[in-house]
Design a protein around this nucleic acid. Sequence first.
DNA 1: CTAAAGTTTCAGTAATTATTGAAACTTTAG
DNA 2: CTAAAGTTTCAATAATTACTGAAACTTTAG
Lengths: 183, 183
Amino acid sequence: MKMTPMIETFVMHFGEMGSRWGFNRTVGQMYALLVITKDPISANQIAEALSISRGNVSMGLKELQSWQLIQMHHKPGDRKEYFQTNGSIWDMANRVFEERRKREMDPTLSLLRDILLDTPANAEEQHAQEKLKEVHDLLEGITKWSSELQRLSPEKLDTLMKLGSGVGKVLDMKDKLLKRSNE
Amino acid sequence: MKMTPMIETFVMHFGEMGSRWGFNRTVGQMYALLVITKDPISANQIAEALSISRGNVSMGLKELQSWQLIQMHHKPGDRKEYFQTNGSIWDMANRVFEERRKREMDPTLSLLRDILLDTPANAEEQHAQEKLKEVHDLLEGITKWSSELQRLSPEKLDTLMKLGSGVGKVLDMKDKLLKRSNE
DNA sequence: CTAAAGTTTCAGTAATTATTGAAACTTTAG
DNA sequence: CTAAAGTTTCAATAATTACTGAAACTTTAG
């Protein structure tokens, strides 16, 4: 597995970005390689293409599987395992959002819920709790909203995206419609 | 500056989460402290409350300022600088999203644009480019969509959020409305 | 059952990132 | 202008995180 310069550029960049996206450099490289490679490839091919150790590849594949970003394959008459990305680019984005929400918001949300059950001991804690309530409501709002979005069909999502700032107009229309139906 | 146990719990948790949110532990702690503290506090008070070095606080404040999350204040007759969070919790969320978009998507988007200008050298690169196009379109979609959302008034955003799965229905209404106005 | 082909684990080490604290710098009251 | 009060910088070091590769494990063909 030799990468062409174009492919190498992309793979290495994805590696650099990896850490910002929630996984480490080699996991980012591995995923990039799998995204642009048409046919499933083996762990050894990955190790060779990226010049990293076989052990590291094994751990990376485990990580990518835990994100549900890749799939394992078996070729008939071959004992090796072959890997491939799982689903469309949209599915990938959904999984990444979902996973990050789990890691970045859920633990905080749960802690905030606990703290908000306590009775504030003094004026200082009273003020603190009010702020925490705001943070809590924000996180809860984002969480609910994002799970609603994931429930929408891809077509509706696409419409919504294309609507852009037009969303404002649609909201106005909604108010008018409701009013009309109440009359 | 002594923190009560409740406040300490929150501050330390925010520190742990900090790295997942794009800044480091102490920056997370510092921000949490500023969020729940009513009156502006000095760099020294922060260092004392969190038991971290004065130098570290200085760097952290710089980082928080670069995210536009805090504001500096001067008290009359006092040479010290006092700090306070900047804007509402909503403003905070907006700034964090914006900043993360800059760090996590913009560089990739720009690289992808470049690569897509190249002519594929063979079938392998041809397939790679198709995939890259998909990734590019996804990132561009998210970028545009999120900047549209930021342009909406807070009230409309709130309506949109509360709408939840109702978004689907509103989209249906939109189609009907358009049809009606065309008749 | 055995050996071969493959995968995973994990202790040790390398690489990266965060933190300290002393020195350099800046600002202002007098 | 000077000294005092404050802030920032950055080289050294600590803490964390990622990577390697050999050993342990698993699976299957024969």
